[in-house]
Write a protein that binds this DNA or RNA. Structure first.
Length: 231
DNA sequence: CCAGACGTTGTT
DNA sequence: GTCTGG
DNA sequence: CCAGACGTTGTT
DNA sequence: GTCTGG
């Protein structure tokens, strides 16, 4: 699963790296500990990619209240086309969520150990997401999203049984293209990201508190942990 | 027909 | 909104 | 994802 | 244990 991650690159860097053509009025502040229910930065659109904000936890168009969003923070890649909550967004409202890294808690005999996983290049990468624009009872629009998960690659398998779907640079364009809606073609874009391009290390429990979004969250708990990182 | 669900994860 | 269960 | 709450009454 | 909040 993917329930916490970082977003700290400048909007300008993201624009350069991901061919963003427009900026929304509201772009959330950088965060070292993004949690569900918070507004995150997302890129939508195809011909004109736009960097803006979506709230994490998808609220389907038919929902009578936004409550359901807290459950829909992840969507399994394998069943996107079937699930009532996701199938419409899967066809027409796909987005990408730039991330610098993400967190997973590895279970050991001693308890859960938080880990930070990132790209060896240390560049931001693209998480596959779906979004909806929900109409509130008051008539206002609320943009919400979910992060797609997939099978773990070999690095992630040592930490967890799922991982977020990371879009290879070559696949981002097709993922965002609304004219594509063929399930098999879209599933093809969601293959597990290559293990060789990723690395992970242990971090401190500072990350556990969703209220703490300081830079210290993703730092190695000690030098020895940095040097014994998995890769 | 109407009512109720609509999700993922990990753990047992 | 749409499907499943009763 | 983890942390933290988990209740009602009457009074201000 | 389970739900809500961040």
């Amino acid at each position: 699963m993917c329930g916490r991650f970082t977003q700290f690159s400048n909007p300008d860097e993201l624009a350069e790296l991901f061919s963003v053509r427009e900026f929304a009025a509201f772009i959330p502040e950088p965060s070292y500990n993004l949690a569900p229910k918070q507004f995150l930065r997302a890129i939508v659109g195809h011909e004109n990619r736009r960097l803006g904000a979506l709230r994490w936890g998808l609220v389907p168009a038919w929902a009578k209240s936004e409550e359901i969003g807290q459950k829909l923070i992840n969507a399994r890649a394998e069943t996107l086309a079937e699930k009532p909550s996701f199938r419409e967004a899967f066809k027409k409202r796909r987005c990408m969520i730039p991330a610098n890294g993400f967190y997973e808690w590895r279970k050991s005999a001693k308890g859960k150990v938080p880990m930070y996983i990132y790209q060896k290049s240390e560049k931001p990468f693209a998480l596959a997401g779906l979004y909806e624009i929900w109409r509130t009872p008051a008539g206002e629009s609320l943009g919400t999203c979910t992060i797609v998960t997939t099978e773990p690659n070999s690095l992630m398998a040592s930490i967890h049984n799922r991982m977020p779907a990371i879009l290879s640079p070559a696949n981002i364009d097709s993922w965002l293209d609304r004219s594509i809606s063929e399930t098999a073609q879209l599933h093809q874009l969601l293959q597990p990201f290559p293990s060789e391009k990723m690395a992970a290390y242990k971090i401190s429990s500072l990350v556990n508190s969703p209220k703490n979004n300081s830079e210290a969250c993703f730092k190695p708990v000690s030098l020895s942990d940095a040097s014994t990182e998995i890769s």
